[in-house]
């Protein structure tokens, strides 16, 4: 292994206060728990933070979308169809579900460097808003 694996505190330090070329700035904070999780808030999009976990096999970045209860009655099938259709055209991210919570996520290799991770967070944040925009007609 040529590169050292990134840890959450490393990542927090690297992301905190960072500003991208597009003017996005990040604020990162480790949430301690049984599985430590990094909460990354993106400026002007504080409502949809990105949560990052690192394990032996991958770095996972997740953004929480809507809950099952937020779907307009009778629209569920169309919504699921739309999500499946969006999965491939959407760069780097995919949709998933954790219980009743819909999520959008991206997975990276443990050996990714900081630029890759910044790009991932950046893209995931854009994708979160775009996904919500595209799906909004099915939500209440």
């Amino acid at each position: 292994m040529s590169k050292n694996n990134m840890t959450l505190p490393d990542l927090a330090t690297a992301l905190n206060g960072l500003e991208t070329e597009e003017g996005m700035s990040f604020n990162a904070e480790v949430i301690n728990g049984e599985v430590p999780t990094l909460q990354v808030t993106v400026s002007d999009r504080e409502e949809f933070p990105i949560y990052i976990t690192i394990d032996d096999s991958q770095i996972l970045a997740v953004s929480y979308l809507w809950k099952e209860s937020e779907i307009k009655p009778g629209s569920r099938e169309e919504l699921l169809e739309a999500l499946l259709t969006l999965n491939i055209p959407m760069p780097l991210s995919s949709f998933s579900k954790l219980g009743g919570q819909y999520v959008i996520f991206g997975a990276l290799s443990c050996h990714s460097d900081i630029e890759d991770i910044i790009h991932e967070v950046d893209t995931l944040s854009d994708n979160t808003l775009e996904a919500l925009e595209s799906i909004s007609e099915f939500l209440q």
Partner: peptide, 20 residues
């Protein structure tokens, strides 16, 4: 087993996030 562990880790992470 790896897949299950990943899923469990994500659930635990979600729990931490919700607590926070």
């Amino acid at each position: 087993l790896q897949a299950t562990k990943r899923e469990v880790a994500l659930i635990k992470s979600t729990a931490s996030v919700q607590k926070a």
